[in-house]
């Protein structure tokens, strides 16, 4: 086993269980774990319908919706496809696509 973790820009090499911390703690930020790979459904924002109310941003449990230039943007590296955002959008501006099709 030689998993590589990124800790503050450093690379940490785990060669076996003996290198593990004594408790269930990560060796650094877990951002390397791109949970977007779990996604079956893909939310896509229709910016023509979107009124920038940011309800989706508030509700995303990840949070995988970020605000860029005053508009909601989905970060697909971490969006798990739970579709909560689509459910909550008052303008039905978030369209559901099936991944891999």
């Amino acid at each position: 086993m030689a998993i590589k973790f990124r800790t503050d820009g450093k690379e940490v090499k785990i060669t076996g269980e003996k290198d593990m911390p004594p408790m269930a703690a990560s060796l650094g930020l877990m951002t390397w774990n791109k949970t977007g790979s779990w996604r079956n459904l893909r939310p896509v924002i229709d910016y023509d319908k979107c009124i920038d109310c940011f309800i989706c941003w508030k509700f995303c449990p990840e949070p995988a919706i970020i605000i860029v230039d005053e508009r909601p943007v989905i970060d697909y590296d971490y969006c798990k496809g739970c579709m909560l955002c689509a459910e909550e959008c008052p303008k039905d501006a978030i369209i559901t696509e099936v991944e891999g099709k």
Partner: peptide, 22 residues
């Protein structure tokens, strides 16, 4: 300043070892 996660999901792959360390 040095973020990490604690107490995350731990499968049988590692839980046994945590007990050993205790």
């Amino acid at each position: 300043n040095d973020p990490r996660s604690f107490g995350a999901l731990t499968s049988e792959e590692h839980y046994y070892e945590f007990r050993y360390k205790m």
